[in-house]
Design a protein around this nucleic acid. Sequence first.
DNA 1: TATGTTACTAACAAATATGTAAGTTATGTC
DNA 2: GACATAACTTACATATTTGTTAGTAACATA
Lengths: 128, 128
Amino acid sequence: MSIIKPTSTNFSNKKSLENDCLEVYTSNLISGQWVLPICYALLEKKLRFADFKEIFPNITDRVLTLQLRKLERNKILKRTVYPEVPPRVEYELTSIGNELKPVIKELERWGAKHKEYVSVQNKINGAN
Amino acid sequence: MSIIKPTSTNFSNKKSLENDCLEVYTSNLISGQWVLPICYALLEKKLRFADFKEIFPNITDRVLTLQLRKLERNKILKRTVYPEVPPRVEYELTSIGNELKPVIKELERWGAKHKEYVSVQNKINGAN
DNA sequence: TATGTTACTAACAAATATGTAAGTTATGTC
DNA sequence: GACATAACTTACATATTTGTTAGTAACATA
C-alpha cells in the first residue's frame, strides 16, 4: 500500500506464497488496517467517503483513500463518481466483495473462541 | 513482530479496531507473511525448526523464529524443547490452533472464487 | 582438544504500511 | 469576486515488518 519494489526479496516471497497458498492470497487481499472494517460497513449499505470518516473518526484521508483504492483495484468494491460539485463518490461492494461475508463471519467466530480459550488458559495458569 | 511503540497512533488504532471488531482481532493474529503457511503445515503434523526451513526454503532463521514466537505467544502453537544436544524443539498446534482449519478453508474458498471472478471480469473487459 | 550439530540471537539494513499537515479542484451560492 | 464544499493529492515523517550476515551455546564424538 504505497511504493513497492518488485525486485525485493520481500515482494518475491509474498508473490510466491500467494501463488502457492490460496489462503495467503486472500489474506493479502484483506490486509490493511482498515480494510475489514470498511468491508464490514459496506455489507450493510453503500457509503460515501465522508461516511467512512464518520464511522472511523481516526482514519486519515490519505489512508482511507489508499485502502479504498486497493479494494477497488482488487474488484472488491466499486467506486462511482457523480459529476457534481462538490464531488459525490459512492462506494459499494461488488458481488465478490459481498461474498466476503462468510469469511468475515468465520474470522469473527474463531476470534471469539480464541479469546475464550486464552482467558480460560490464563485462569488455569493463574495469570493475574 | 519486533519492537512496537505502545504510544504510536498506529498502535492505538490497531488496538481499538481489534477491540471493536473480532474479525480484525483474528486477522491480526494470523498476520505475518509466513504465519498461515506455518499453521497449514502444522495441521498435518508437528514439526521441528529445521523442518520449516525445508518446507519454506526462502524463510530466514530470524523471521521463522519471530513468526513462531508470535504464534506461541498467542497460544496457537506449543513449543516443546527437549533437553538434548544438539537441541531438539518441536512445534505443534494447540487445540485452538487446530481450529484454524475451517478459517483457512474459508479463506481458500473465497480466494479461489475471487481469482475466478477477476479472470472473468478481465475477459469481459477485454484485458490482455 | 577440535569439530559438527540444531536452534537459535544480535546488530544492522531495507522495504512497506501508516500518519501528519497542508494543499488542490471545480462550481454553486452569497 | 470571495467562500464553502467533498473528495481527494502531495510531500514528508514515523512505525512496523521483513531480510542479511555473522555469530553463539552446549555437548557428543572423533
